[in-house]
Design a protein around this nucleic acid. Structure first.
Length: 663
DNA sequence: TTTGCGGTCCTTTTT
DNA sequence: GGACCGCAAA
């Protein structure tokens, strides 16, 4: 069943273990078998934690573990989750030590942008997003607002540090956390409270970390605090597949492992069970231009297979048509199932022309990742009600719910209510029930507000007994949500689609409530962490469209990698030049894409691609060249562009300085 | 004061 | 093609 290296990785239980797992070398199999081995060695299932990066990977891991060990629902007790879900669990159970109530809200990225606009007193969304980016990196590096202010190197960063401090206060007031907090608050918790640390160390006796190369500094700290000094963990990763540097992931974590744990056992998995040699050779030719942390050479017993194809198209529409034709050919020519075909790309917006072409050709598809179900406006509206129900301190949720649908409450009223709540240092929701509220906002608006408050109180009361799905549907009926969607859609078709989304969401809540035997309030607490609903059964036989990042860890017999062009893969723009480090990461991304394919692989690129209003001429990705020659391709243009960009940013900074000096 | 409408800008990758 | 801003009407 297991090869020699896999068996060694599974058998090593006595100390820390690092498994360097090449693409397709069976790392999920190693993790699941190791879980089985740990159970046999006497650990209770709830003492074993397996940590992944995506919900999808966690779900797959759960399923594979269940196949292997399931008797009496043992697999269901395993702590298999994403880093972030584990963080939520820790904070719900032990977060009070940090002043966080168990019913805290989890904010989505858009909510955070909105708060940062407020915190920085600006309407500039782009600026807010830049702050968001900076603050996120700070949190991932475990920097408090005070520490950030100390390390800030220029005025921009000093302003960002101030915004960060205000933002942190707002989160505290709203009893809300963002995604980064889900890692860094648990770290703080374990650092500052010895009894909590001991509690969790004895609760989770063995940790298995998947995609270890993508951990950032905060995640490493969390890992170390959880395993204590016993080193009861296995990290599985591949330095060639590290593609989250932009999120603070660092290969230092891979290097640190050997210094922090001298007894670390390092095991390499080099036999590939996935791809043909033609595909592996292409992958190796690309990745060999990168410096190596753990050199390895992948080999496969599968035959040579079909050659990797490169195809050029005129523009993205033609590329999409070509992809559709390719899929038809795979289907009719070799009876390929649609579920065995994937189209991968660098950026989410590339899915649009592809989707159009597939619809025209009547090819069913699912877009994985990208604009998630929960990003849709109508779903966020419903979630705002749920969040408010779970956590009445959640002012952002209050603001969204109270204005959706319109109920005669506008910005003026809300500004008055906010300043009233601010005076008393209470949440907006709590402000509703204060006797002096009507005097602050006026008689008529206060009636509307009170009515909204009664609605929520009523739902909250009934949530204790009524089934979640039923209650939710009833609430949507009461607020006239369907009618509101109809009014606010451009056409009946769109309204219908949006209502269907809401209806699917209600159905999902219903099932979830049944399965977990929980009420609406508890579901509301976890909703922000879920990124996608379970695929519906009727879409089983469908082509997968997804980004390269979302494709990591997955595989398909037939893969098309679209948009293999300079500027897109590797990605760069005029003001974001390609640094050597970025180029290496883009190359790893390409490597990840190529190694998703089992049997056939097509790389396509466009001679022209729409950019803003016009269309820009494009050249094929240097990775295509590297794949064919096995040599890194360095162009003078890169060096020149990097120089120009550096010059420009210097000039820009100088211009800003002189502009600031004038007034 | 609230709400609806039309023009403008922007689009790397994710939990 | 979507989110957001500014403007005009109820």
């Amino acid at each position: 069943m297991l090869n020699a290296a896999q068996e060694r990785a599974v058998a090593h239980l006595s100390g820390p273990c690092l498994v360097i797992a090449g693409a397709g070398s069976g790392k999920t199999r190693v993790i699941t078998h190791k879980i089985a081995r740990l159970l046999r060695a006497g650990l209770e299932p709830e003492q074993i934690a397996a940590i992944t990066f995506t919900n999808k990977a966690a779900a797959e891991m759960r399923e594979r573990a269940a196949q292997l060990v399931d008797k009496r629902g043992v697999a269901g007790k395993l702590a298999i989750s994403t880093f972030h879900a584990l963080g939520v669990r820790m904070l719900r159970e032990s977060g009070e030590a940090l002043g966080l109530k168990p019913r805290f809200s989890i904010l989505a990225a858009d909510d955070v942008t909105g708060l940062l606009r407020d915190a920085g007193a600006t309407t500039d969304n782009a600026q807010a997003r830049r702050w968001q980016w900076t603050i996120s990196l700070w949190k991932n590096a475990m920097l408090t607002p005070e520490a950030a202010a100390r390390v800030a190197e220029n005025d921009d960063e000093r302003v960002a540090a101030k915004v960060y401090a205000r933002y942190a206060d707002m989160l505290q007031a709203y009893q809300a956390v963002d995604f980064d907090d889900l890692i860094w608050l648990p770290v703080t918790l374990l650092q500052q409270h010895a009894e909590v640390r001991e509690h969790w160390q004895s609760k989770l006796r063995y940790l298995l970390v998947d995609e270890y190369q993508d951990t950032n500094a905060a995640q490493y700290d969390l890992l170390r605090l959880l395993v204590g000094d016993k080193g009861r963990f296995t990290a599985v990763g591949d330095d060639d597949q590290s593609i989250y540097g932009w999120r603070g992931a660092t290969l230092d974590n891979l290097r640190r492992l050997e210094t922090d744990w001298p007894t670390l056992e390092v095991i390499k998995l080099e036999q590939n069970y996935r791809s043909t040699n033609a595909i592996l050779r292409a992958a190796n030719a690309i990745i060999q231009s990168n410096p190596k942390l753990y050199p390895k050479s992948l080999w496969s017993e599968h035959g040579e297979g079909e050659a990797v194809e490169v195809r050029a198209a005129q523009n993205e529409d033609e590329e999409a048509q070509m992809v559709a034709a390719r899929i038809q050919a795979l289907r009719s020519g070799r009876n390929a199932e649609l579920a065995h075909i994937a189209v991968l790309y660098r950026a989410n917006h590339q899915s649009r022309p592809l989707e159009q072409a597939l619809r025209r050709a009547n090819i069913p598809y699912v877009v994985s990742g990208g604009q998630s179900f929960f990003d849709r406006a109508e779903i966020k509206d419903v979630c705002a009600y749920l969040r408010l129900l779970a956590n009445p301190d959640d002012d952002p949720a209050f603001l969204r719910a109270v204005t959706t649908p319109r109920r005669g409450i506008g910005p003026q009223t809300l500004a008055a209510l906010s300043s009233f709540a601010g005076q008393w240092k209470i949440s907006l929701f709590e402000a509703l029930s204060r006797d002096s509220m009507p005097a602050a906002v006026g008689a008529r608006p206060s009636d509307h507000l009170r009515e909204f408050g009664r609605l929520l109180h009523d739902i909250e009361w009934r949530a204790r007994t009524a089934p979640a799905g039923e209650l939710l549907r009833e609430m949507l009926e009461t607020i006239g949500f369907r009618a509101w969607l109809e009014e606010h859609s451009d056409n009946p078709r769109e309204a219908e689609q949006r209502w269907k989304n809401v209806d699917d969401f209600c159905g999902w809540i219903e099932r979830k409530a049944e399965e977990d035997k929980v009420g609406l309030t508890q579901i509301a607490q976890t909703v922000s962490l879920i990124t996608q609903l379970q695929e519906r059964g009727d879409q089983r036989d469908a082509v997968t469209l997804c980004t390269l990042h979302a494709a990591k860890g997955l595989e398909w017999p037939h893969v098309v990698l679209a948009g293999c062009e300079e500027g897109l893969l590797p990605f760069f723009t005029e003001d974001r030049p390609l640094t050597p480090a970025a180029l290496e990461e883009e190359r790893r991304l390409m490597y990840v894409g190529v190694t998703r394919a089992r049997q056939t692989l097509v790389l396509s690129w466009c001679q022209k691609r729409k950019q803003g209003r016009g269309a820009a001429g494009r050249t094929p990705s240097r990775f295509i060249d590297e794949m064919q020659t096995g040599q890194p391709k360095v162009s003078n243009k890169d060096a020149a562009m990097a120089r120009i960009a550096a010059l420009r940013s210097r000039l820009g900074a100088a211009a800003e300085e002189s502009a600031e000096a004038k007034p």
